[in-house]
């Protein structure tokens, strides 16, 4: 039945109302489900390590530290400075290893190679290893995500 000035029939109106209600009902259930499924895991903004553990590193060696759930790699360069990397291959997320005699980082999963500065040089990796900012304050080594103040 349709009233003379109405845009739609009574059936269309009721179907729309019911459908809209069902849709809203479904969304109100889906939203919490989706929120629940994806847990809030964020990378740390910074990690503070005792500098004493890393002070005596020989040049061209690395030490691992925990960067959240990922391995971080602290490398001592030849000039005595330090560089921090996220030790995860930029191809498909495998953990990399440093080969001091070849001065290269290596990922065993699909044979990806990076030079000693973490620049990708052979195999499938599309990007350099991620770098982390590093500062020494007193007795602490402070490692920060790039872009975090």
């Amino acid at each position: 039945m349709k009233l003379r000035h109405s845009l739609f029939t009574r059936r269309q109106f009721l179907n729309g109302l019911l459908g809209g209600w069902l849709g809203a009902f479904a969304v109100s259930f889906l939203y919490p489900v989706l929120k629940f499924i994806f847990p809030p895991t964020r990378e740390p903004d910074e990690v503070i390590l005792p500098f004493a553990d890393f002070q005596d590193m020989e040049p061209n060696t690395v030490k691992n530290f925990a960067w959240g759930n990922k391995p971080g790699i602290l490398k001592r360069n030849n000039d005595g400075s330090y560089t921090a990397f996220v030790g995860v291959c930029t191809h498909l997320d495998c953990n990399v290893t440093y080969l001091p005699d070849q001065r290269k980082f290596y990922c065993a999963c699909h044979e990806g190679w990076y030079d000693e500065n973490g620049i990708h040089m052979a195999g499938p990796p599309p990007r350099p290893l991620r770098r982390l900012n590093l500062s020494i304050e007193g007795e602490n080594l402070i490692i920060k995500r790039e872009g975090v103040e």
Binding site: A66, L92, C94, N95, V96, A108, C109, P126
Partner: peptide
């Protein structure tokens, strides 16, 4: 936290995919 071990391989039915990922350039 450990590096990926040498010679990792998936199950045999994913080997063709594994090899594709390995040989495709970056």
């Amino acid at each position: 936290m450990a590096p990926a071990p040498e010679g990792i391989k998936p199950e045999w039915y994913f080997l063709f995919l594994f090899q594709m990922l390995k040989i495709f350039p970056s």
